[in-house]
C-alpha cells in the first residue's frame, strides 16, 4: 500500500510537467510576437518593449523556461499585467466563492443523483426509470448558462424568491450565503447530476442481477437493505470514479456559471484575464485548476483502494 501510494504520487509529476510545459508554450505558440499580442492593438513600440522586458521575453527560450519553472515550483506565478498584483494573490482572493460554489454543487448533485440512479435501477424498465433517464439526457443537453438565466428569470425576477445574482461570504451570515448559492449550484449541478444518475443506474442495474443480491432477497431481507447494504457497496467504485472525472466538467462549468450569476470567483477572474489578455493570470489559473484536477483524481484512486479490499497493489 505504501509503495503504491508513493508510485501513484510520483506518477502525477510527469502529468503536471506536461501541463507546465504546455502552459509555458502557450505564450510562444502564438503567431507573431507574444509581447505585442499581450500589449494589444493600440500599444506603442515602447509599451511592447516594456512588456517584453517585464516578462523576460528578451532572454533565450530555454533560460525563460528555466526561470519560469523555478518560479512556479517556488509558488510564484508571476505578476498580472492588468492589475500589477501577484497572480497567486489574485487567485487566493477569488478562491472562496469558487470553492463554496463547487462544494455546494457537488453536495447537491451527489445527494440528488445517487438515490435517483438507485431508484431507476431498482425500477428498471418502468416509467420511473424512463423519467430519470429523460432527466439525465436533458441535463446533458441544456446549456448551463441558459438554465441559469431561466432560473434567474423564474425564481428571482418573476417570483422574487431569491437574489438575482452576486455572492455573499458566509462570514456575513449563513442565510444570505446559502440564498445566493442555491441557484448557481443548481444550475452548475445539472450536468453533474445527469452524469452521476446515469452512471449509478448503470452500475446498480448490473449489480442487481448478481447472485448474491438474489440470495439476499431469498433470505428475506427488505428491498432497502439489499439496495443500500449489498448492492450500493459494490456499485460504489465506478460512481466514485465518475465523481472524480466529473470535476473537470465542474471546473469548465464554473467559468460560465460565475459569469451568469456575477460571482467574483476564479471563473470570473479567468474571463476577465482573457478579455484583458492578461497572460500570466491565465497561465496561473490553468496550472491551479489542472493541479486540482490531478490531485482529485489521485484522491479518487486512493479512495478506490480503501473502498475495495480486493484491489491490492
Amino acid at each position: 500500500m505504501g509503495t503504491y501510494l508513493l508510485r501513484r504520487l510520483l506518477a502525477t509529476i510527469p502529468v503536471m510537467g506536461v501541463v507546465a510545459l504546455f502552459v509555458f508554450a502557450l505564450l510562444h505558440l502564438t503567431p507573431g510576437d507574444p509581447a505585442a499580442v499581450i500589449a494589444g492593438d493600440y500599444a506603442s513600440p515602447a509599451d511592447v518593449e516594456r512588456i517584453r522586458h517585464q516578462l523576460g521575453l528578451d532572454k533565450p527560450l530555454h533560460t525563460q523556461l528555466g526561470i519560469w519553472l523555478w518560479h512556479v515550483v517556488r509558488g510564484d506565478l508571476g505578476t498580472s499585467i492588468f492589475s500589477g498584483l501577484p497572480v497567486t494573490k489574485l487567485i487566493a482572493q477569488r478562491m472562496e466563492p469558487t470553492l463554496a460554489l463547487t462544494v455546494a454543487t457537488m453536495t447537491i448533485a451527489v445527494v440528488v443523483a445517487v438515490p435517483l440512479g438507485i431508484l431507476a435501477a431498482w425500477k428498471a424498465g418502468t416509467w420511473i426509470d424512463r423519467l430519470v433517464m429523460v432527466f439525465a439526457v436533458l441535463g446533458f443537453s441544456i446549456p448551463v448558462f441558459w438554465l441559469g438565466f431561466l432560473f434567474i428569470y423564474g425564481f428571482s425576477i418573476r417570483l422574487e424568491l431569491l437574489p438575482v445574482q452576486g455572492y455573499v461570504s458566509f462570514k456575513k451570515g449563513l442565510l444570505p450565503f446559502l440564498k445566493h448559492l442555491v441557484l448557481p449550484s443548481l444550475t452548475l449541478g445539472m450536468v453533474y447530476m445527469a452524469l452521476i444518475a446515469r452512471m449509478t443506474r448503470g452500475q446498480h442495474a448490473g449489480v442487481l442481477r448478481e447472485d448474491y443480491v438474489r440470495t439476499a432477497y431469498a433470505k428475506g431481507l427488505k428491498a432497502g437493505a439489499v439496495l443500500l447494504r449489498h448492492a450500493l457497496k459494490n456499485a460504489a467504485l465506478p460512481i466514485v470514479t465518475i465523481i472524480g472525472i466529473g470535476v473537470a466538467l465542474l471546473i469548465g462549468g464554473v467559468v460560465v456559471t460565475e459569469s451568469v450569476f456575477a460571482i467574483p470567483g476564479l471563473g470570473r477572474l479567468t474571463v476577465d484575464a482573457v478579455l484583458h489578455r492578461d497572460y500570466p493570470v491565465i497561465q496561473g489559473i490553468i496550472l491551479v485548476f489542472s493541479g486540482v484536477y490531478v490531485l482529485i483524481n489521485l484522491g479518487v484512486d486512493i479512495v478506490y483502494t480503501l473502498l475495495d479490499p480486493r484491489i491490492r497493489y
Binding site: 502529468v15 503536471m16 506536461v18 501541463v19 510545459l21 471546473i251 467559468v255
Partner: peptide, 23 residues
C-alpha cells in the same frame, strides 16, 4: 501518452479559452 495525460488534465473549456485569448 504522457503528452495526452497532461493535456487531459487541463479542463477543456479553459484550454479552449486560453487558446482563443492568443489568437
Amino acid at each position: 501518452m504522457r503528452i495526452m495525460d497532461g493535456l487531459m488534465a487541463i479542463p477543456a473549456i479553459l484550454l479552449a479559452i486560453a487558446l482563443i485569448a492568443l489568437v
